[in-house]
């Protein structure tokens, strides 16, 4: 029975010791990636960029509309209840609007035609105190 399993199961037949180790390390690496890149941290600020320049960084604990000018017109960005979104855009595809409200640290939305981007920043970004 054991012999039968060994011969017919492709996993035991084709995998060698190093293969098992590599798979194990890959799984650990992927779990590490999930843990680090999928933060559930509530965002505290939103950073708005136009092209190469940072237009501004705004706290999310306010209700506010921000107008940002780009090469094809003006985008409106709304902030309310700890969230931020693109609410008006002169671009044709409106992808940035469809991204909807963002509220977690690390989330981002971009309007490529107008070169404007939003990036949500958590309260614990290491250079926070240096910059602001």
């Amino acid at each position: 029975m054991c012999n039968f399993l060994r011969l017919n199961n492709p996993l035991t037949r084709y995998l060698r010791l190093g293969d098992y180790l590599l798979i194990l390390m890959s799984i650990i690496g992927i779990l590490w990636l999930f843990n680090n890149l999928w933060s559930n941290e509530q965002a505290a600020k939103v950073q708005i960029r136009q092209g190469e320049t940072i237009v501004g960084t705004y706290g999310l604990n306010q209700t506010r509309e921000i107008q940002v000018k780009g090469p094809i017109g003006t985008n409106t960005i709304s902030i309310s209840n700890g969230r931020a979104r693109f609410s008006k855009s002169p671009c044709r595809n409106q992808y940035c609007i469809h991204q909807g409200w963002l509220n977690r640290a690390g989330q981002a939305a971009i309007c490529l035609p107008n070169q404007i981007s939003l990036e949500l920043i958590g309260g614990t970004k290491p250079y926070d105190s240096l910059t602001y």
Partner: peptide, 15 residues
Amino acid sequence: RLPKHYFGPVSLSIL
């Protein structure tokens, strides 16, 4: 260049 005895095609494929 990994030792063939321990690392088979599955390792190369994943890498």
